[in-house]
């Protein structure tokens, strides 16, 4: 019985996850030669040229910066949302989720118009006598776009973990004389770590592979690894090299997940998904 209910999932994931992954690996380790298809690591060797490593490095740095900003902004927000004193947290959660109902591309296009030299943000700045802000087509704009788009992925997992903390533990600590700082440091913070871990993973992964945000808000000047992959498939038609970069990316993400999961507390099932 158990087997029967499981089989559609197995079929589904092998068809749409395992097979495509194997194809990517296949393309990455083969090259086309006049004599036919040959096994080769040529594609990977190409990736380790300085110019492509630089692209990888920039992607990782930008994704890390965005993740840190998301954490700094998201952690207090999640605490406030989960705090008992806050009666309207459901409304606030809705407000966090609401933009996610809109298409991601549209939201990024909206920033494009907002940040323009003669855009809305600068019009408001000038009206209240501030210096105009020229950040469109800079790294700042790319980071802003990432933080804006991925912030909910940080807030929601932390929120779901923190709101599940047993209030009586906190009350017990207070009874034993802990002030609110100690309560936070010794109880809330350690218990919220699983949420922070999944938040970091969920922000870092899409941030490190994005190609739309860097193209639109970076004006094509900040080539990230996602852009490089897109370019290989859509413009150059070099599937081998594109697949090799994808494989490297999968490894980077696997390593970072493995690293993060060491901090995860097994007993607290704090993942959002």
């Amino acid at each position: 019985m158990k087997k029967a209910t499981l089989s559609p999932y197995i079929l589904w994931s092998s068809l749409f996850i395992i097979v495509p992954l194997l194809l990517v690996v296949y393309y990455s380790v083969t090259i086309e030669t006049p004599e036919g298809i040959e096994l080769s690591l040529e594609n990977f060797k190409k990736f380790f040229e300085p110019i492509y490593l630089k692209v990888l490095w920039r992607s990782i740095i930008l994704a890390l910066i965005s993740t840190v900003i998301c954490l700094i902004l998201g952690y207090p927000a999640a605490l406030i949302l989960a705090g008992k004193s806050f009666k309207r947290s459901n409304t606030l959660i809705m407000l966090f989720m609401l933009p996610m109902w809109m298409n991601f591309l549209l939201r990024t296009y909206a920033w494009l118009t907002l940040l323009e030299k003669n855009g809305l943000v600068n019009m408001i700045f000038q009206a209240i006598g501030l210096q105009p802000l020229n950040i469109l087509y800079t790294e700042t704009a790319v980071i802003l776009g990432m933080v804006y788009n991925f912030l909910p992925f940080m807030v929601l997992p932390i929120y779901s973990v923190v709101s599940k903390i047993d209030r009586s533990i906190i009350e017990a600590a207070e009874d034993l004389g802990a002030n609110s700082l100690i309560v936070f440091l010794r109880i809330i913070l350690p218990l919220s770590i699983p949420g922070v871990v999944s938040g970091i993973t969920m922000v870092f992964m899409p941030a490190v592979t994005t190609f739309v945000i860097s193209r639109l808000l970076g004006g094509g000047q900040f080539m990230l690894i996602g852009n490089l992959i897109e370019q290989q498939f859509l413009f150059v038609g070099d599937w081998g090299f594109g697949s090799a970069i994808s494989v490297v990316m999968i490894l980077v993400i696997l390593v970072s997940i493995g690293f993060m999961s060491r901090f995860e507390n097994e007993e607290q099932g704090g993942r959002l998904w």
Partner: peptide, 20 residues
């Protein structure tokens, strides 16, 4: 490259019309 504001295709017309 340091002088270039952006590399675009479809947006170029709108950006120029808007005086960007």
């Amino acid at each position: 490259k340091p002088l270039v504001l952006a590399y675009v295709v479809d947006e170029v017309k709108d950006k120029m019309v808007a005086g960007e």
